[in-house]
Amino acid sequence: MSLREAPRHVPGIPDNVGRLPRGISAHTSPFSQDVRRDEIGRETTPILEAYSLSIGWIQRKIPHVLVSNINFKVTPGHLIALVGPNGAGKSTLLKTIAGLLAPCGGSFSISGSHGSTLSVEERASLLACVFNERIEAGYLTVGEFVAFGRYPYTNARNRLSLEDMRHIDHALELVGMREFIKRTFSSLSDGERQKVQLARAVAQDTPLLIFDEPTAFLDAPSRIEIFRLADRLIQEAGKTVLICTHEVDLALRTADVLWVIDREHRFLAGSPSVIAHSGAIGRAFDLPTVAFDPVSGAFHARTPRN
């Protein structure tokens, strides 16, 4: 049921490796700074790594922990799907990784650099984020919007170099929106806006991309298209994509790594199939009226029994 057009084929590695829990390993030590490689020479320095991270918010210097004891380690080139019920802490985790919230405890690293020591500029060259926000900017064109992705690279006068233009073109090409470059952003449909937002993140040319519920407000074909796009980014450019989503079935079918935050604010990372069959998704989401079926990978209403 994979959405991939072609299986990821790595010479010397059997194809079915693609569905194994790659990029995950048991956690024993804090981040290693050295560049590690696997047996065929691929770089395996974790792009994202957390060590007993706790997240939440800090109000009047008192931390309010939402999720604690988060551990993960992900090597580059994977699709990570973050799922969980509303209010579990998904957005809080994304914001913490994006540097918008300070961690309440523990630590995390992006590409080997400690999360809390990254400068604003360094962070912008390591990860690009698309958060759900209403964008109203009148005459802003699609091209100008995607050019925001080049901000970490342009000078104060915001002159685009030829290379910047190439990145913008390529990013729009990738999402199939190149002919929209002169259109105003406000004239686009929700689906088109979402694709242009993703193109903006791609233009930022970072190894890690974070999409916060990119499929909200979209129709079913557009949702699948967004996941297909994420997959292309991984296949063609070797990016790591972290998607926070409510599309549990899509996530199960496409993601390499699944992160789950359940109703009790517990964090769990693993391969989608293992997690699905372990019943963890059911535990995270199940309500008296709705249950998750690990076989079909979908939710269904519980049939009332007497």
């Binding site: 604003v120 500029e121 690009a128 958060f131 901000y151 104060a156 915001n158």
Partner: peptide
């Protein structure tokens, strides 16, 4: 001096932060 920041602030401050401002 802050032309870039002004452009980005039109979208939002969180957005501006994520593109390195």
């Amino acid at each position: 001096i802050d032309i870039k920041a002004l452009n980005a602030f039109q979208i939002g401050e969180r957005f501006a932060f994520t593109i390195g401002i």
